[in-house]
Amino acid sequence: MKIGIPRALLYYRYGIFWETFFQKLGHETVLSPRTNKDILTKGEQLSIDENCLSTKLFFGHVAALEGKCDYCFVPRIANLGDAGRFCSRFEALPDMCSNMFRDTGLKILRANIDPEQNIPAKRAYLKLAMQLGASREQAQAAYEAGMAAQMEDFRKKIKLNRALLKKEGIKVLVVSHPYNLYDEYIGAPIIKSIRNLDAVPICSDGVDPREARSKSTEIARYVPWVVSRELLGAIQMYRNQIDGIVLITAFPCGPDSMVNEMIIRRISHVPILNLLLDSQDGNAGIDTRLESFIDIIRFRKEVEQ
C-alpha cells in the first residue's frame, strides 16, 4: 500500500520514525514535495485566514498528496503524558482533514496518541500496524526499528550542535518549532541569511528532549506544551555559549504568543530578535532586521573586548 506523509508540522519531529515504521511493515511511503509556491497557495485557499502559516502549509501538503497515495497519514497526537501537551491543533488535524477533504478521493489514515487518556504512543502504533494487517511481532519490530532510527537522528542533531558551538565567530541560537525551522518558506531562508552574514546558526531542536524539558523549568515552571518546554530548555542549556537568540514564530501561534513574551521578559543578558512570519513574498524586511541584529552583536563583542 502507498502511504502519503505530508512534509509539514510534526513530520519534522516524527518523520523519520513514520517512514521507517511504514517501510518496515512493507508499505511504500510517499512524501509531499518540499514547500513551494503552489503548496503555499493551495494551503491558503483551503484554510481560513486566521490559521498559522505552518497549518496553512500543512493543508497544502495534504492536498499535494491527492491522487499520489492510497492513504494520507494524519495522526492525532494530543500529549506525551507528563512530558506535556501539544498545541490543541494536533488533536484536531485528522478530523479537520477528513472534513476539508470529504468530497475528494483522499482517504485519511489515523492513529490516536493520547497518554493522558491511557493510549501511549507505542500502543497506538502497534494498533495501527495490526489494522494494516501486520502480526504483533511484525508490528513490534517495525516500532522498534522506527524508534532506533529516530534516536539516531536525535544523536546526529546533538552532535552537529556540539561541533557548531566550538566554531569561531558569532553564534546565534535559532529558536522555533522544528516545522518552522526547516521549512523552505519559513525558517530555511532565515538560517541561510544568518550564515551569509558570517554568523553560525544553531538550531534549537539539537538537544536531548528529555534534558531540555527538565531544564526549561529554570526559566518558566508551568508551561504546558512539550515543544515550548524543549525550546525553553534549549535556551537554558545554550545561553552561556551563544551571542544572540532569534525567535521565529508563525503568526498567530498560540503557544508562542505567550511563551515568547516570557522568554523576552526573563532572559536579559542575551540579545533577542523576535521574527513574526505571516504568508508573505520576499524576505527583504527580514534580511534587514537580521543584518542590524548581527551588527549589534558584533559591536557589543568589540566593545567588550
Partner: peptide, 30 residues
C-alpha cells in the same frame, strides 16, 4: 485545556513587572 492553561504564569510575570504586590491562586494542573 487550551492556551488558558498558561495564562496564570504570564499574568503574574507581567503584573509583577508593573510593580504590583500580590499573590496568585493559579489553579492549573501544571
Amino acid at each position: 485545556t487550551c492556551r488558558l492553561g498558561y495564562y496564570g504564569e504570564l499574568h503574574e510575570q507581567i503584573l509583577k513587572d508593573l510593580g504590583y504586590d500580590f499573590k496568585i491562586m493559579n489553579l492549573t494542573l501544571a
